[in-house]
Amino acid sequence: MTGTTGDTLATLGRLSPAVREALRTECARLADEDDAEFGVRLLAGTPTHEGRDPALLRRWATAATEFGAGLTGRARLPQPRVVERTGGIERLLLARYVSRPAPAVELFTDTLALGEELVDLLGWRGWYPAGALRAAAMAHEDAHRLLHDDAALKRALRERLGHTALRFGRFRIAAHVAGADELAAHGYAAARRGLGRSPLLLTAALASAVRALAQD
């Protein structure tokens, strides 16, 4: 276990019993939701989807997640440069892919450590094995690299979602669905790392944990 993890354990350990119990209850409620619902929420909160039918968002969320899961059979990308940072909890970041100056994946070790501890606290190890969050973060950013580098893949995602920007007789331009690539990346990460539940569930639980830490 790294020093950072130890620090974070101490941080979560500082939660009062009442706040910890409230966090457990909140996360149990999150776990009762089905995975697609988290996708719907992500899309609903993404600009350009104001006023969209929730059923349509659910269809898009499911299609994008499945599309991402289907990418696991593709050839592996070369290992990117990995940069480990702290300060993720403060900035509410778990990982980040940057394409310049050179493609790199930034992993926020404090957030990852908090995630691991949270999984233990909530008894979610069956869904998220030890070290799975870091691996999922790498896979998630791999998916962004795949989509970023491959125009045909991006086109295929648009076609899978079936949203139309412009139709003129038989001529049709498939519309970009903002947020779909993020869901595809989560779908890819879950499938690639064999997670029992969507990474979005753990993301929501982590957000609750950070709020609890801030309140306590």
Binding site: L93, L94, R100, P101
Partner: peptide
């Protein structure tokens, strides 16, 4: 081109904005 693209796995909940809520009611 210089700064490239960034994709973040964020814990931030989608921001609620009154204007966006208004747009939700109005549509295109």
């Amino acid at each position: 081109r210089r700064k490239g693209v960034e994709h973040a796995w964020s814990l931030a909940a989608p921001a609620h904005d009154r204007r966006r809520d208004r747009a939700r009611q109005l549509g295109d």
